[in-house]
Amino acid sequence: MFLNAFSNPRLGKWIIPGAGIIWLLGCFFLLTNEGLSTEVAFTDSFFFALFFLGGVAVLDRVFSLYSPKEKNLLLVFLVPVALSGLSVYGHRFLLSWWYLEDDIYLELLEKSVYLRWMVLGLAEQLIGVLALVVSKLERQEELRNRESQMLELSKEAELAQLRQQLQPHFLFNSLNSINALVVSQPHKAREMVLLLSDFLRGTIRKDVQTWVTLEEEVNYLKMYLDIERVRFGHRLKVEFSMEKEVEHAKLPPLLIQPLVENAIKHGLYGVTGEVKIEMKCKKEGNYLVLGIQNPFDPDYVGAEGTGFGLSSVERRLYLLFGRKDLLHKSAHEGLFTIQLQIPQFV
Rank of each mutant, 00 (worst) to 15 (best):
V212R: 02
L151C: 01
G54C: 11
C27I: 15
I342Q: 00
D198N: 15
R144G: 01
Y318E: 14
V183F: 12
L254F: 14
I21M: 13
V238R: 07
G20S: 12
L319D: 10
K250W: 09
W14E: 03
G12V: 12
R163S: 09
I15L: 14
F47V: 14
I277P: 02
K329M: 12
R163M: 08
P258M: 06
V76T: 12
E156W: 08
Q140L: 10
S7Y: 04
Q165E: 10
G267N: 05
G20A: 14
Q344T: 02
A303H: 08
G12C: 09
E284D: 07
S197T: 14
S197Y: 02
D44R: 13
G285M: 01
G322K: 06
S7M: 12
V246M: 06
S154K: 13
L137K: 13
S177L: 15
A19R: 08
L30Y: 08
S64V: 07
V58H: 00
K155R: 14
G334A: 07
N173L: 09
V58Y: 09
D297I: 05
D198C: 06
I22C: 11
R163V: 00
K250Y: 11
T38P: 00
E107R: 11
E142V: 01
R235M: 04
L73A: 08
V134I: 11
W23F: 15
Y220P: 00
V346Y: 07
F93K: 08
R92P: 00
D297P: 01
Q341H: 12
F48M: 14
G128M: 00
Q209Y: 07
G267F: 05
A123Y: 06
K111S: 13
I15N: 08
G273H: 08
E215Q: 13
W14Y: 15
A331H: 12
S312R: 02
N145A: 08
I16V: 13
L126H: 03
L122T: 06
V193K: 01
V133C: 05
F46K: 03
S112G: 05
E333A: 13
G291D: 05
L65R: 10
P258N: 07
V62E: 00
L73H: 07
G309V: 11
M150N: 05
I178Q: 04
Y114A: 07
F345E: 11
M192R: 03
F52R: 06
Y300P: 04
N179W: 10
D198V: 07
L109G: 01
K71V: 11
E278P: 01
R144N: 02
K111Q: 14
F2A: 09
V88L: 03
D325S: 09
P17N: 09
L137T: 04
K206Q: 15
L73F: 11
A131I: 03
D44I: 13
V193D: 00
G20F: 09
G285E: 10
S184Y: 01
Q339Y: 04
S112Y: 11
I104Y: 10
L162V: 03
D299M: 15
V182T: 15
K244N: 12
L86T: 05
N176W: 10
V79I: 15
R316C: 01
S37C: 10
V79N: 03
L109A: 06
E247L: 09
Q165D: 05
L319Y: 11
A19Q: 15
Q167D: 10
G12N: 05
G309L: 04
N4S: 09
T43I: 13
D226S: 14
G85N: 01
E39M: 13
M118C: 11
Q339T: 13
S311V: 06
N8A: 05
L310T: 14
L162M: 09
P80N: 04
